[in-house]
Design a binder for these strands. Structure first.
Lengths: 110, 110
DNA sequence: TGGCTACTTGGCTATTTAGCCAAATATGTC
DNA sequence: GACATATTTGGCTAAATAGCCAAGTAGCCA
């Protein structure tokens, strides 16, 4: 009886891992507004271009974004807009955490 | 002009990182069905008890699960059921990836 | 108290990841 | 072709993470 953790969970984890970084979440959020090229994102993030490029390739390998070369820039777009819903859920967790934290403080004050 | 990646994105990333592991996703999926104690999960996962315990504490620190001690077992429950929706979105990405992959194969065959 | 079961913590190693710099590649212009 | 711009790739180091084993803690029962 063991190892009910399987390929499905590994596939999920691969996608989720690709999302698990502040800069990459910023990119996702920005792409929600429309396509952006690597240079735009690099400037907004304020890190080395190579670093941002690697973040973009992580997102691309996970299938979260698509890229298209036009002129001498590469434009990135979101492939599955549903990712925002997911962020909504994360916000829900965060606000639940904040509420609980506030309760603990209130309780200690008494 | 830089560093529009901020605390919000870091907070998101912390939660998402907690989800980004096959065993932890298995735990989330299992808890969806109802509470489970650490021992049950350990047996199902088939890893060392200390390993599973650490996964549970990662989930707990992120505020994703809650624990309750009863008798000499510790029972874990999901704190925000919306996490499942999020997994729905991950599945959507995976099926989009599969479809694209199939198209590439089809195209090469011609 | 002593011993049992259930779980967590500490300590260690191996692996993965993030970030920078420097170098390579690709496109567009003169 | 030479050169500029935009982006990626390779190489390296520092930091984070996963996993095991061994030791510690906590509740229960005799």
């Amino acid at each position: 009886m063991a190892n009910r953790v399987n390929t499905k969970h590994e596939a999920w984890a691969r996608i989720i891992k690709a999302l698990a970084h502040p800069s990459r979440l910023f990119i996702i959020e920005e792409l929600q507004k429309g396509e952006r090229c690597a240079g735009d994102l690099t400037e907004m993030i304020g890190a080395d271009a190579s670093t941002v490029s690697k973040h973009l390739s992580v997102l691309k390998n996970a299938g979260l974004v698509a890229d298209e070369k036009r002129a001498n820039s590469i434009y990135y777009t979101l492939r599955c807009p549903c990712i925002l819903d997911f962020i909504g859920c994360v916000e829900e967790v965060l606000s639940a955490n904040a509420k609980e934290h506030a309760n603990i403080l209130k309780c200690c004050k008494k």
